[in-house]
Design a protein around this nucleic acid. Structure first.
Lengths: 111, 111
DNA sequence: TTCTTTTATCGTATATTTGCGATATAAGAT
DNA sequence: ATCTTATATCGCAAATATACGATAAAAGAA
C-alpha cells in the first residue's frame, strides 16, 4: 500500500471521516449511548455494561476522547467521562449540510 | 485477538456502526459528496476526481454499495451510481434519536 | 507503609483495511 | 473478429484496528 492517501483530501472530508470512524464500532456506539443517557458521568460502570475486557473498553474510551467525541477527567482513583455535545452538533451540521440540503435538489434517483 | 465481538451488541448498535464505518474514509466521503451534488449518476468521472487508482476507487464504491449507502446499475459499458437517500434518512433518524433528543435532558456537562 | 480499588498502558496475536498493478469481463466501435 | 473503453476482481504488501492478559500508576483505606 505504500502510503495512506488521506492527506490528499480536504480537511472537511477528513474531519467528517474521522468523526464517522470514531463511531464505526458497536462498542463505541454503546459507550456513547450510555454516556448520553446518564446525566452524571460514568467511569468503570461502562466496563460492567459492555461484553469486553476492561483494557479493551479503556482503549475504546481513549479513541473516543482522541477523536473529540467525549471528554474525560480524573476523579480520585477513578475516571469520569461525558459526551462532548459540541462535537456532535458540528458533525450533525456538516452531515445535514452535505446530505439533507442537497437531497432537495435531487429527488429523482436514477438507479 | 481471538474473535471479533461485534455480534455481542444490539442490531441497532451494529447498524449505526456499519453506516458510520462506510463513511469513515475521506475517499468515501468525497465519493458521496460527488454523488450528492450531481443529479445524474456518475461512473468513472469519480476516478478522475479522486487522487486514487481506478481499482481503489472501485473498491470504495463496492464498500459503499455493500453498506447500502449507494446503489449502482450497469449502463452499457459503464457503471452508474447514485445515493440511496433512504439509508441516509434512516441513519439521520437513528443518530438524532440517540443524541439530539437525549441532549435536551443533558445540558449540564460534567467534565 | 501496605493493601485494595480503579484505570491506563504495554506487549502481542490476529483480523481487517487500504492501496495498487495486473488481469478479467463486458460491451460498443471498427 | 479485433480493438478500444470502462469497470470489476484478484493477489499481494503494508498499515491499522481489535482484543486481551499482564503490568503500571494513582489514590484512598487499613
Amino acid at each position: 500500500m505504500a502510503i495512506h492517501k488521506k492527506e490528499a483530501f480536504t480537511q472537511k472530508e477528513q474531519d467528517l471521516a474521522n468523526f464517522a470512524k470514531a463511531m464505526s464500532h458497536p462498542a463505541r456506539i454503546a459507550i456513547l449511548k450510555v454516556l448520553a443517557q446518564r446525566n452524571e458521568c460514568i467511569c468503570g460502570e461502562i466496563v460492567e455494561l459492555l461484553p469486553l475486557a476492561q483494557s479493551t473498553v479503556s482503549q475504546h474510551l481513549k479513541e473516543l476522547k482522541t477523536a473529540g467525541l467525549i471528554s474525560g477527567s480524573i476523579d480520585g482513583p477513578r475516571s469520569c467521562y461525558c459526551i462532548n455535545w459540541k462535537a456532535f452538533e458540528k458533525f450533525s451540521n456538516e452531515f445535514n449540510y452535505l446530505f439533507n440540503k442537497l437531497k432537495v435538489n435531487n429527488e429523482k434517483a436514477c438507479c
